[in-house]
Design a protein around this nucleic acid. Structure first.
Lengths: 337, 337
DNA sequence: CTGAAAGCGCTTACAG
DNA sequence: CTGAAAGCGCTTACAG
């Protein structure tokens, strides 16, 4: 494979100087249309490829964004990552993406690697590791970074935080079930003492307290497997519980499967509300009620906020909460007819 | 934000030349341990960050892999992408990832962008667009590239192809249902005439022909929604069909929901086999039988093949088919007890 | 409007 | 074992 042509080769072929070729590349209005044509022709003939590393070296922006995700296999985060990446691509940015699998060592390593690669900005859905140094490496490198969905670093003036209004979501779900006449409502799934779990539970706790009712929480990994196991456990050991708000749809979908196995009719014998409203909720039987977070929109908006910061210097507000809404379906209302 | 320190700053602080700093960076055995110590100390003090763009310019490899995926939201491809990315990360490579959403224009654009960013290799699960120029842009740039899961470019000597043994998978599924005594078995989902659909169907067709039976295919998007609709349609209009092999688990999961809605007991009234064996299959009720593709392993192996090519010059074979196996569960065997 | 020159941060022979 | 020098492909003032 012979070496790739450079702007010098293009310049020679077009009979101009390499500065002129560079000006064409920059879309400089200085270049005469005829000259531009000539240069573009030469580029096509030679199969010229722009070398961003070289351009970057001289000063500019490399047009690369770092996207760090704690769990890329979880459809909630997949949707977020895919939406953000597509938004960046539309605006001419490439995205380096890494799945940290909730492991702080991997997170630290990929952040270091992305800094070396010269990313212009970071969008990070971090793991939870309060004891580590947070995003200090990024601050030292002076790279704009937003923390989304989870706040790992308290310095939101440096690392703006954006998430969804989980507290309101928990309240909406609880008020919905209370409005249907339920009294014994549990919260299922989510690891105890994690901020997101606390947020999602807080609205539930508040609504239950206002109704003068006790709460009950069954914590665990936000997975289908945990949901399935909990559905079976609730039937066996807590038959008094009439309904549940789940930490996430994955838990709720697991519970749906568990109740099917136990022969419990969801929506009638037991009322269930998920959290996130992933696509699958509208496709199960019975359909799953959920708190809609519209993470696709959230991913797009987060990417746009990042781009506004990079391109126009508009730093996002320290704290943003995107609105959520309740979508009631069969699993809480019952199957009609 | 003051400018980042360079090797010259480190050299000055450590009292050595910048060549020596570079040698430390390269882990050259030439450097005396004491000198190395001195340099590393200075790096730490200054918060030095290696600039890969500059290094790349001089010749070397930038340590960046381009991962191009046709549908990042589909859990099958998410799993593939996540496994490949994690494997690359373990070996010190960063991954630029892009979701093309099955759109050829986006695919062409992201490939061009990745070439500009200097990726060392490509792993591509492409869209299907026979009429375009395939991967010619990449060939011209002289970058090693593997096509996985779908073959868009016929030049497998240039772009090695790796996929799963779908034909055998289809045969195993058909033979399984035939062995249970079924005669009227349909194939559901998958767009007609797509290579993957043809491959997955071919084994089914062969097994049915050997048994002297007719085939029936109901093509459509490989989505939950299509599966749900087809389950309802089959019950209403094709009650003679006793079982189905689905193009993918998403279709099968949709059918599971549709049958639940229709009151059909899967595993007894109707027997169902999915394809891919995503995690969810073992967590539904009834549990879904499926053709296990182990895409996590396939992702890892594909990444390793790419790395062997890049690092040791071992080009992968033109064509590779990873083995698959049938996992029989409730949806075809019935729920025990 | 176009060209000659310096320089971005690194690596790579080559002297010493 | 360490240092001085050239050069990777581009951009950016600055002359012309």
């Amino acid at each position: 494979m012979s070496r790739r042509p450079t702007i010098v080769d293009v310049a020679r072929a077009a009979g101009v100087s390499k500065s002129t070729v560079s000006n064409v590349l920059q879309n400089s209005p200085l270049v005469k249309p005829a000259t531009r044509k000539l240069v573009e022709q030469a580029m096509g003939d030679l199969g010229y490829v722009y070398n961003r590393s070289a351009a970057n070296l001289r000063g500019g922006d490399i047009g690369l964004i770092g996207l760090v995700i704690n769990d890329l296999r979880n459809p909630f985060f997949t949707e977020f990552a895919a939406s953000a990446q597509m938004t960046f691509a539309e605006r001419g940015y490439a995205t380096v993406i890494a799945n940290t699998d909730e492991k702080p060592e991997i997170q630290a390593q990929v952040i270091a690697s992305m800094i070396e690669h010269g990313v212009s900005g970071f969008l990070i859905s971090p793991d939870y590791v309060p004891e580590e140094e947070g995003l200090e490496t990024i601050r030292r490198a002076g790279i704009p970074a937003m923390q989304v969905l989870r706040r790992i670093d308290p310095r939101t003036d440096v690392f703006p935080f954006a998430s969804l209004d989980y507290a309101t979501g928990g309240r909406l779900a609880a008020e919905h079930l209370l409005g249907l006449g339920l009294r014994r409502i549990a919260f299922v799934g989510g690891l105890a003492n994690r901020p997101v779990t606390e947020e999602r539970m807080s609205g539930y706790r508040a609504a239950m307290a206002e109704a003068g009712l006790d709460t009950a929480a069954f914590h665990g990994r936000p997975s289908r497997a945990f949901g399935r196991d909990m559905a079976l456990a609730l039937r066996a050991r807590h038959p008094e519980i009439e309904g549940a708000i789940c930490f996430s749809d994955l838990v709720a979908l697991g519970m749906l499967a568990g109740f099917a196995e136990a022969g419990t009719r969801v929506g009638t014998d037991f009322r269930l509300v998920g959290f996130d409203d992933i696509e699958e909720c509208a496709l199960t039987w019975p359909r799953l009620s959920s708190v809609r977070c519209d993470v696709a929109r959230f991913g797009r908006e987060s990417a746009e906020a990042m781009l506004a910061w990079l391109e126009e210097g508009r730093q996002p507000p320290p704290m943003r909460r995107a609105p959520v809404e309740l979508v009631a379906r069969h699993s809480s209302l019952g199957v009609p007819g």
